[in-house]
Design a protein around this nucleic acid. Sequence first.
RNA 1: GCCUUAAUAGCUCAACGGUGGAGCACUCGGCUGUUAACCGAUAGGUUCUAGGUUCGAAUCCUAGUUAAGGCG
Length: 367
Amino acid sequence: MKFEVLHTCKQSGAKIGKLYTDHGVIDTPVFMPVGTHATVKGLSPEEVKATGAKIMLSNTYHLYLRPGHELVEQAGGLHKFMNWDRAILTDSGGFQVFSLSSLRKISDEGMYFNSFLDGSKHFFSPEKVMEIERALGADIVMAFDECTAPGISHDEARSAMERTLLWLDRCSKIELKSHQTMFPIIQGNMYADLRKESIERTLPYAKCGIAIGGLSVGEEPRVMYDMLDVLQPLLPKDMPTYLMGVGTADYIVEAVSRGVDMFDCVLPTRIARNGSAMTKNGFITIRNAPYKDDFSPVEEGCDCYCCQNYSRAYIRHLIKADEIMGGRLLSIHNLRFLARLTEKIREAIWQDRLLDFKKEFLANYKA
RNA sequence: GCCUUAAUAGCUCAACGGUGGAGCACUCGGCUGUUAACCGAUAGGUUCUAGGUUCGAAUCCUAGUUAAGGCG
């Protein structure tokens, strides 16, 4: 895997790049749809591709529990199993350590946890996670990290950061398949000194990209931007930076202008299934009454399959009637919306005017 | 014509003679490395009508109205 920088924005320092994988080339900045259970909920791979996605996420923790990484390997790997021939990134389960905290116990050795499916006991060590990710066969595999919530003490944050670094070192010793590369993850909670130390000590492990974890976990946006500001001067210039879990237009624009290149988020597809659409003016809740007889497209000027063929009124009807198609159409739109956003961002970077673009974009966007 | 049963929120139904609730629908809010086609909130009532019994009636009694079923 190789990353090539094509241009750096003179106004912002943001870069346009190409990430070459065995499963295609990814233009950055990029948004990556999430398909936790080896499917972007509700959409076929063809539909996901049609939104412009060149890479998608899947999840180590969930696929390990069901159907099992051995089975995926037996099927010929994740790409073949799910019929997706473009790039895949697997998250390590570190976030599940965090979000399913009631079910786990954590130590330097790793994480003991109970399956949310049947309560059975399991253990993830960094080595075990790498072994699973190798079996799944994604192009980019995430290191096993410990994600923390805002509000913890400096000591607790340091402890999680140290553990993440310890685990990272162990992850780095496990051999992956030839087409795979591992992204290490920066932690440090909301403490500037820890974030700085974390990136400095994590960078030596970054071969083709580096990730920022533990943000967008409930803190105020300002806090996240502050952390990105701390990291920005220390980010590598020759490889992509991936801000994990971020997926609203305003966050993406703000983060790219601070040097971030890759994003993923469940939000576009989740809020779609729950009846909301992303637009350049912010979210709109299509399921609400005002759209009952609104026969215009979800977003005027959008080139997606949804907007080209269906009205807000129809989609509202589908959502209210609990018809799957409503969530599917909005998922298509929201993914296309973010793909188009990154296209516009790349264009602005080419033209060395990303900060102007950001200002114009945010002026119309209501968070 | 007679008999039986029923009538409570928009719908389907709870509620011992003791402060009328639930689910769904409606309206709105939330969702950020997916335990999420999910979660939450607001609103919604002359308990069919009129009398009666009772300290107190959705609940018991009488009459009526409407509906369903049965008998003629």
